[in-house]
Design a protein around this nucleic acid. Sequence first.
DNA 1: TACAATATACTAACGCCGTTAGTTTATCAG
DNA 2: CTGATAAACTAACGGCGTTAGTATATTGTA
Lengths: 193, 193
Amino acid sequence: MARQGLTRADVIQAAIEMIESEGLHNFSLRELAGRLHIKAASLYNHIRNMDELYTEIGYYVISELKKVQLGAIAGKQRAEAVKALADAYYRFGKERPELYKVILSLPMVKNDAIHRAGFDIVEPIMSAMSGYRLTGEQMMHLQRVFRSIMHGFISQEEAGCFRQFPVDVGDSYQMAVRGFILLLENSEKEARK
Amino acid sequence: MARQGLTRADVIQAAIEMIESEGLHNFSLRELAGRLHIKAASLYNHIRNMDELYTEIGYYVISELKKVQLGAIAGKQRAEAVKALADAYYRFGKERPELYKVILSLPMVKNDAIHRAGFDIVEPIMSAMSGYRLTGEQMMHLQRVFRSIMHGFISQEEAGCFRQFPVDVGDSYQMAVRGFILLLENSEKEARK
DNA sequence: TACAATATACTAACGCCGTTAGTTTATCAG
DNA sequence: CTGATAAACTAACGGCGTTAGTATATTGTA
């Protein structure tokens, strides 16, 4: 068949769209190929294998997440910045749940470029916390705590683990964020000692 | 071939062992059958399908988790109980990471029995928090926050997402738990008003 | 004890999957 | 215009979960 000027970027873009519309666990190279009017084997002219494709998509997701987070905290300080950061993260997870799940499959690959993605995840968090007077070491721990809360909340809500009680999930989320801000304030006091 | 008195429980037990030793994403019905000296098709005499098997394993995991948690908090109160609860959860996640991952695949199934598992997850948390003077509504929110922190931390550490900084992951964990206890104390003050 | 029913195993096959090897063909560079 | 390269193809491999149909050993009952 005649070639159609398909690029690596086209393949990745189509994969992203397929994951968002069909769900991550319904994704397959064969159907992706079909969407591009190509046979599955031809995909290997553009990507090395499925893992590499996921890695590429993971980079995209992380960069998108970073973008909305940096936009959200711009011009804000302290609790306001942290709330805005969390809200942006939460909204991203709710609006693009299937894409969000790709992040988790990322770190399994042993790749140097992972480090870049790692710092892209951390940077907005560090930036949002910068208004607090914390030591570097505290910030390294606290960004892990922040990510734990956010990821844990988003993935469990998405999985349907929060349906047990008749209380609003949004209220639970607010409490989680409040807890992190309490921890920030408490850590600040500790640092000043 | 002659039958060998294989039971449904044997199949589930072998599946659990295979997941723990080979990893969840290396699990397959064909290899499970091989371990039981059976053909894959014969498994269907004992289980309806793979989803049902995962569900069954999920119940096992949740009951094991509940067991160690209840044991850990026995005779303890307030912060001490919550710390013991978190430690038991954390230890379980670190010691049996592949089995822990099964929990996440559980809620996708629409099953009434899920409710039972749901309460088994919640019960030890509610019990550990019972020493705090909280409203019922607060406790419903707070158990979600607790599960978010713990699940988020465990799954991200396991996925290798916490390798970026040269600070001890155990210390980050301690900080996360401290944050939750701060939130508990703060919520208690709010409730007393 | 003999027979019928049931439970447990089997073989064979279907339609997916990711991936590789080898081949053809269109485009582009010199 | 020609040769090289890039992008498509066909065919196949070994894996997967699952189903249909069949044989046989055990179990419960008459």
